[in-house]
Write a protein that binds this DNA or RNA. Sequence first.
DNA 1: TCGTCTAGGACAAAGGTTTGTCTTCGGCTC
DNA 2: GAGCCGAAGACAAACCTTTGTCCTAGACGA
Lengths: 357, 357
Amino acid sequence: MTELPPVPAPRKAGRRTARLVDIAEAVGVHTSTVSRVLNGDPAQSVRPEIYDKIWRTARQQGYRPNALARALKRRHTGALAFVIPLLRNPIWVRLQRGALQRASERGYAVMIMEDEMDQAQPPSTYRYLVDESRADGLLVATSLRIPAHAEGSTAGLLAVPHVYVNRRGPVRGNDVVMDEPAAVRLFLDHVAALGHRRIALIDGPVEVDTVHRRALAARRACAARGLQLTVLHADVTEEGGWEAIQRLLRRGAATGRALPTACAVGSLNQMFGVMAALRGAGLAVPESMSLVSLDEDECLAFLDVPVTSVAMPLAELGSAAVDALIARIDAQDTADVMICEPMNLIHRDSVARPPGS
Amino acid sequence: MTELPPVPAPRKAGRRTARLVDIAEAVGVHTSTVSRVLNGDPAQSVRPEIYDKIWRTARQQGYRPNALARALKRRHTGALAFVIPLLRNPIWVRLQRGALQRASERGYAVMIMEDEMDQAQPPSTYRYLVDESRADGLLVATSLRIPAHAEGSTAGLLAVPHVYVNRRGPVRGNDVVMDEPAAVRLFLDHVAALGHRRIALIDGPVEVDTVHRRALAARRACAARGLQLTVLHADVTEEGGWEAIQRLLRRGAATGRALPTACAVGSLNQMFGVMAALRGAGLAVPESMSLVSLDEDECLAFLDVPVTSVAMPLAELGSAAVDALIARIDAQDTADVMICEPMNLIHRDSVARPPGS
DNA sequence: TCGTCTAGGACAAAGGTTTGTCTTCGGCTC
DNA sequence: GAGCCGAAGACAAACCTTTGTCCTAGACGA
């Protein structure tokens, strides 16, 4: 394997790929006939002998329809653009996977546009992809925060088929999201049943829509259950999680109020920071603090103390988003979609009864 | 060839986007003039007044050249296809980022094709993307193992501009890889200097090219330094890492030979399993076993014991791969590329002197 | 005055498909 | 035998740009 043949650099020597007209000539019919036969046009009738010859020739010449010409004529590119922040956070990977797979099943290619977390562009920036006929529609998973969305950038996008993924856009009817409230309740019910009364939620910046909805759901659910809730917003990084715990501790020390005994963490990255900070503060998990990750990843099972988590339907979200976008491209229904299943609490070892119970 | 691409659905009618002819009519010139002016053709001379009017009208109508028609005529799509296994492993994310960014700088769009780890396709499968004029070239980062590559699947790809990323293809001249031997040496020099003599390398399946090259480099370097090396191949998962350590322990018990005192782990996923297994076996890090990850990720700094790692130039790899592919598309040079920098050992707390020294 | 040159454009031919409309011809009915 | 019809395909017009070539009128030189 180490010594392989030297490369002959076989750049295509003028031999162009087969076209419809090549087949037509070889068979002795018009290109329109070849086109209809190859596309299985039921209205076209040809003698079986010609039919066979067309297929044989096409196969033999390795014919592939030119997607450009076809798209130009059909006014339909068969491509979807996915605007996504490429983060280390595995949720995006799973989401991307689900979307890619479904798109491929439905005969669409997906082009990925990175939208950097730090300098997110308004989604309408990407409209040009549709205007230039590079894509038929936009899957928007940008991390731009809500207020910036709302201001003006809206109008541009509306002219073009698009769907917001895991986020709510400025108008209703184009969103595909997960049931964040259910995830939060899954966590709350679990720890409340064990006797926890003081709860913390550590999550990303409040301007991020998912975070906002989780916080809201947590507040409602805690109010309903008579639980005391502390919400801490921090960067979606290990540092962020670390710093959030510091804040929690400082706040506890300053007010003299007892610390929460159960804590949910919005992202895997933050989780690492949270655990490090807890360890540093001498707070044992789960003895002093129960921990639940709202972001499932297999590595959680292998940590020092395996972390209980809520597994969200991310792949399902991705594929549902693709379906929703294609429906919009085909000018079909246009309603928000919420993906609820499957959503499971994965029991591991980071949750226990509150201390002193 | 049995199945042509799925027939796309019809598209809703509506306000069409501006075309060259719309501008031409509005201005009162021929479309060719508009095209040349808008494309800045230096050979075209036009009165300043017309020039201004063309630009004004184009801007006002929000003209965007139709990428399909343009690509059809120019025989150049401006898109690259990236065949990649979408894994949780963060290396792919970084690689993808580097590639996306560079491609966008060079005016190319990137479409991502997922190639599943489990059922990887021969790279020539994706040739159709170029044959159908969907992309100008292929960035191949498939996880398919070498032997399968070599057999027959080669010929198809050669006809098309492509580059293997982080892998060696079956012929020389189309590979963009990192300096894995240097990474291995960085690890070895570090632990050898501390007095370690018995070394382990836990990595993915040997058929994966990067793994193969790392193992080879490790063997050579250990031989040269008089170190004793154990290489363990395992799945690139947490389980895999866990199981590799079990194997190491069983082997030690069976032969009665002393265990390695320093261990490099090829991927982050495996690292979690390795640490769990070590913990389970009562082997403290770094007192009983020094650990180095060959896969840097920020979370390593926040683990129970922060893990020393070798940071590889992944983003650089991605952008270099894009450059190399574009060079091939432009029929320029065709030589292998090896990315060497930046590559750093990130010192954390998982490496110490060997026990009893 | 005639020819030449150049600026300033116009014309038209691609590029490969799709698709609405026509044509031709044999067979059938009446 | 005239008329009609369906089968089997041919024709040609898009789809929107790019680009090689051609045209025209005024300026200029001889």
